[in-house]
Nucleic acid binder design. Structure first.
Lengths: 259, 259
DNA sequence: TCGTCTAGATTGACTAGACAATGTAGATGT
DNA sequence: ACATCTACATTGTCTAGTCAATCTAGACGA
């Protein structure tokens, strides 16, 4: 268990570096157990608290998890593919499922979602994207999507209330047509969207809704849809935990043809 | 921002929640100073170590930074816009600058980059994307991009050595044409790319190259380019610190025209 | 056999200190 | 006036414990 720069680094960092190395090199594999805090403390000649500080780093890096009273285990991660581009393709003709559910079923897994509709005051970030004043009322369709019973991502759609009041969008029921089609039928067909993705640590609310462990960063994906006239008509915030997703899209070259 | 569950929550979480609330609500603004650990300890009736645990959470969430011996400060963040789509547009006719530098100069800031070329053995993730065996040699053009003297992102391009040996790509000099054009001139014109974005905490190497503070997640953006024949010819890993970037792209609807 | 209870191992939270490291501001000396 | 030094406040690292919470495996009992 060599430690590189041993002398210069504080003990807790040496401990973190040692086990990080074992994990990255593959010597410790997913679901493998680390020694107990007491054992590590003895090996490195420090007290338990120092070990905790070191392992705490690896926990916040998302490399290990603590399971009391079993010990620390190397974390396993598998990524669901998230394709923002798919949203602007015509929806396949299976009106009883949205794209998310279709993809999950195609992967042989079981989707589930709970929709909740509420009226909220637009936070500044949302208001700016929807072109309204902060604090104005918007309709929020908030949902957490589950795969095999586990919360996987957040999908909160927001609409200016003037556009959708009295429409189906106000109903917490699942809309087979999709909200984009409902908006189109109301005369607000979208033909352009701007996607913005921020990388950050989750808020406590997000941690709660997604049952996130510590050390899990998220991507916050704002999808703002515009009509041909340039009016923003919806803004959806997708929150994707980093340990459960990869974002994938494809590009084809514009300009002179290949040859 | 009520603290809810106050009684049930451990003290260090109450402390974190309290100051998190002050920051999110805007009561504490960027660059504002928090009370000292001792003061907070007195206010909450705990010892300093408990305060440190609580503030440590906010540090790893990226909300505050500690500056010794001045105290804790609310972190300021501004995002550089990262547009993966731009890469597949024809390059504007300013051969002395790449797209990154062009964008930065247009924003009135000063770009800088240091390129380093080396031969490395392909790690499994890279090998898979380039369609070669893990451990085979690839050419790596590694660079850290700076804005106003501060490291901002990592851009490491990788090429199978057979394709580029003896070409300009082996030179650590800046290539005005761009590596894509060099590849095209060698007969490997790309016409398609797959983008994959992972959200995770940075490795120690990335922390070092980018001088990242604690609590900064990154987006790891793999850009793999293919020829018309479907052969992967380059794989670039961009590492974007979450506190300095937002990823932006735009979609236009396919399917029936708007109306 | 089957359920229940208990002891034990392990992580979680916290106390009460000590000393080190690091900038700053003020004191000091020339 | 200027440079240098020093005291100090603050965070960083670490020790040495205590008690709580949680889950398991094995003992025990009906």
């Amino acid at each position: 268990m060599e430690t590189a720069r041993s002398a210069a680094m504080p003990a807790y960092q040496r401990i973190a570096a040692a086990y990080r190395g074992l994990i990255i090199s593959g010597e410790l594999r997913p679901d493998d157990r680390l020694p107990t805090e007491h054992e590590i403390a003895d090996r490195f000649g420090v007290v338990r608290q120092t070990v905790r500080t070191g392992l705490g780093i690896l926990v916040t890096e998302g490399l290990i998890v603590a399971r009391r009273p079993h010990g620390y285990f190397v974390r396993r991660r598998e990524h669901m593919v998230y394709r923002p581009q798919e949203k602007s393709r015509p929806r396949p003709a299976t009106p009883e499922m949205d794209r998310f559910s279709q993809q999950i079923v195609a992967e042989g897994r079981t989707p589930h979602q709970a929709i909740e509709v509420s009226l909220v005051q637009a936070a500044p970030d949302l208001a700016q994207r929807l072109g309204i004043m902060a604090g104005q009322t918007v309709v929020a369709r908030r949902r957490v999507r589950f795969i095999n019973g586990e919360p996987t991502n957040i999908n909160d759609s927001h609409f200016p209330i003037d556009l959708v009041k009295d429409s189906e969008i106000m109903s917490p029921a699942y809309l087979p047509r999709g909200t984009d089609q409902v908006l189109a039928d109301l005369g607000y067909r979208q033909d352009r969207a701007i996607d913005e993705i921020f990388i950050r640590m989750p808020t406590p609310e997000e941690i709660h809704r997604l049952s996130l462990g510590p050390g899990t960063p998220v991507a916050a994906h704002y999808d703002t849809g515009y009509t041909a006239a340039g009016q923003p008509v919806q803004c959806t915030l997708n929150v994707l935990p980093g340990d459960r997703h990869k974002i994938v899209f494809e590009r084809h070259w514009q300009g002179e043809p290949a040859g």
